[in-house]
Amino acid sequence: MTDVLVILFGVSLLAASTTNMLGKLIRILAVQGVILFLLTMSNITEFNWVQLAFVALETLVFKAVLIPYLLSDMIRRNNIVREVEPKVSNFFSLFTMTLIFAFGFLMGLWSGKNSPNVHPLLFGIAFSSILKGLFIIITNKKLITHLMGYLILENGIFLLSLAASREMPYIVSLGVSLDILLSILVAGLFINKIKSTFDEEDIDTLSDLKD
């Protein structure tokens, strides 16, 4: 069960490399949120309500509903062009994604050898997702796509925490998810302002400050 879900997550990363539409990227983020919820649930050994409510809040409410809603709201309100407009071709990003997967799996195998309490497949996909997030941030010039890259990176980090198979103290994971939500809100605020000040939301326009 876990393996199937993890592979689904990997497929969603591949889908993110092929798409050209912002809307589809947002849907991929929502699907990833649901996958993360199911994954966490399937890993729970003993059932308890507090934990269930907590995980549901973190993944279903925040990652699968609230954040995608905020993102599409941002796009609608700022009349952002609905295409991704990357600096590289789809073929190139798909090709790099394959390389990232290869690297991730190598890391996974390696991690499995060095530490018994790691789930290698999960670890590999988690690392791939983190790298994919960074790759999206590097190869795109739109601020909103950067934000989505950051979210994919965060999802990878969430997966990594599952791979490490250890429970965070509640206060820490609550703080973490609140921080992420807040950073999306603040970033959205800035995107709105940048749009109204610069009248476009490419980072090309954000290059006045340099030495």
Binding site: Y150, L153, S183, A187, F190, I194, T197, L206, D208, L209
Partner: peptide, 21 residues
């Protein structure tokens, strides 16, 4: 709330968030 301060705060929040991640 000028162009430059907006640019600086966007870079700040984004680069630091990635670093912290």
């Amino acid at each position: 709330q000028t162009r430059h301060s907006l640019e600086a705060s966007w870079k700040y929040i984004f680069i630091c968030s990635i670093g912290i991640a």
